[in-house]
Design a protein around this nucleic acid. Structure first.
Lengths: 346, 346
DNA sequence: TTGTATGCGTTATCAC
DNA sequence: GTGATAACGCATACAA
């Protein structure tokens, strides 16, 4: 592997000069600069990031950690959180303008995953974590070691940078729509996994907003499409059927929808998140949109800011959710211009 | 930031011992081991990856580089290659078992992107690249510097590890189906971008297989859903309409499908790739399945192998594609058990 | 079983 | 403008 030393030798200069050239320092004669540059180009020299990181005390890498829920590995598409893919893209888009890189880590929740993240913190300058990954105290401990921004649904972690989404108002808007517009009385809720704060909050708020129209007990899935299908199969055996099935996320809703369609029964369904696929299914999925792009962007930007200045005061940003009415809730199929793409750029 | 030195001091041992403990060396007394471990735990020490990388000459990071085609950043969902998300997941799944991390880099094709990748090669132990990112000679140059595995559609790069997909046989199967089963005579092909080898190959092979039934000129998109919609709008102004529209990838096919549906016209459509969304749309998209999970897995595994032994002979692995018949081509809507999930684990 | 000392490839602080 | 040289934090060969 080539080093600055060989480059320096070949160019007949010292390594200091090579380093200066690499960083475009102006304290170097144009002639030497060109000579060194030519050599670098010729031999294809690339500075070693480990050495740079060690010397500059900065790795130019940030980590994005997300949960990979449910399902066995054979069945990635139906279970992996498509949700997070949009986050990945928006975070990457922010990083693209800088010279930082994105280290992506996924995993199933648990002690092992938490350890893995802890040791991963040695590889990066900062970490973007989704809330459910570890309890608040571990999160705080981690944040003392390294810049951390938490991507969350609502909950406010004391002393931490948090970018959250206003789950509750979205849930309320949805419940209100189902009740006031459609007057559904027997509402079935398919909840997410119990260890997800998001899931818990959505359930709690929905129960509150549904004003006694929510059927008990609620069904529980793991946010995967498969678990939605499973819930639907349970419902298919029930009589009378609920007037509508509200799911804690889109993937489960899609699972429910498809299972019902396969059984040729027609029950309204709603989701939560507004992932890409939500507008693809027929009927289009009525759901609550999380501003995922803005979420990722805001989180990434905040992380960069904190890496630049670790003394920044903790900040919580709450982004609004919006009710997106498509046809799956029983509304007429408008198929108008899709609200997607109109999300304001924050 | 804590270092081995402080840990060593606190534990009353030398840094060598600390290092040994960290790596679970057996040449250390159980008592000292426990003592050191306790200190590490207590102070929350995490070794610096830069220093480790410098010393061990190994960064434990591999890069995955993919193209981000078309569209402005405001419109990520409709344009980003969902295609690649599945690759990301499968690669990550392989890495999960090791202590390597995944560095994800996306970008629009071009000289700037190529330079970015070149300098990125200083941050990783190996690189997974999709074929269209750079010309063969630059790829070879890069591969001389660092382990590289190319993820491609068919083309065989001399002297390089390649994991490819057998585009051609899939295209032939599709064309044959459209002709023999449906007897479509006026077949419109929506091609991918010209700088994509995959796209070129699919077009060429389709033309060959369509035996004169393919309409000229072909429409060209950029693999995004939006470009599919655009193509559909062109077709809507044409009379007579084609009997079927075959698209070079699923996202464009979905764009075509939805645009047609919006205009209430009924023209069969087919895609290519079999992304997650292909089975979500109604009617289900007839397409050619790329074994993306296997592709990602095979590529990742090969990269690990090559990192371990750079002297390995170059290897090309070609994975088969399969025709997936759903309803969008005009076949009856079976809605049976989905073929997904039956992909053999390689 | 443990400690000492050197090297890893850069950057940055000095002198010149 | 340029060149020595000292960190940077860890792994490891060699001593003890």
């Amino acid at each position: 592997m080539l080093t600055v030393y060989e480059v320096a030798d070949l160019a007949g200069v010292s390594i200091a000069t090579v380093s200066r050239v690499i960083h475009g320092s102006r304290l170097v004669h144009p002639d030497t600069r060109d000579r060194v540059l030519a050599i670098i180009e010729e031999v294809g020299f690339v500075p070693d990031a480990s050495a740079q990181g060690l010397s500059r005390r900065r790795k130019d890498v940030v980590g994005l950690v997300a949960l990979d829920r449910g399902g066995d590995e054979i069945d990635i598409e139906t279970t992996s959180p498509l949700f997070h893919d949009e986050l990945v893209h928006s975070v990457e888009a922010v990083l693209r303008g800088t010279d930082l890189s994105l280290l992506l880590t996924l995993g199933r929740a648990g002690e092992g995953f938490q350890r893995r993240i802890w040791s991963l913190s040695g590889k990066v300058d900062g970490l973007l974590l989704t809330e459910e990954i570890m309890p608040a105290d571990r999160l705080l401990a981690l944040a003392r070691r390294i810049p951390v921004v938490v991507i969350a649904g609502q909950r406010r972690e004391a002393g931490l940078d948090v970018v959250a989404v206003d789950n509750r108002s979205g849930v309320r808007a949805l419940a209100s729509h189902l009740i006031k517009e459609h007057d559904y009385r027997r509402i079935c809720f398919v909840a997410g996994p119990e260890d997800s704060p998001d899931a818990g909050e959505r359930l709690a708020e929905f129960r509150r907003a549904a004003a006694g129209r929510m059927l008990d007990p609620v069904l529980t899935g793991d946010f995967s499409e498969a678990s939605g299908s499973a819930a639907a199969r349970v419902l298919l055996r029930q009589h009378p059927r609920p007037d509508v099935v509200a799911c804690a996320n889109d993937q489960m809703a899609i699972g429910v929808l498809r299972q019902f369609q396969q059984a040729r029964v027609n029950v309204p369904v709603t989701g939560f998140d507004d992932i890409y696929a939500a507008r693809l299914v027929r009927p289009g999925l009525t759901t609550v949109r999380q501003p995922l792009r803005s979420l990722g962007r805001a989180a990434a930007r905040r992380l960069l800011a904190r890496i630049d200045d670790r003394a920044l005061p903790a900040l919580t940003q709450v982004l609004p959710t919006t009710l997106v009415l498509r046809a799956s809730c029983g509304c007429p199929d408008t198929e108008g211009p899709d609200p997607r793409g109109t999300e304001p750029v924050i």
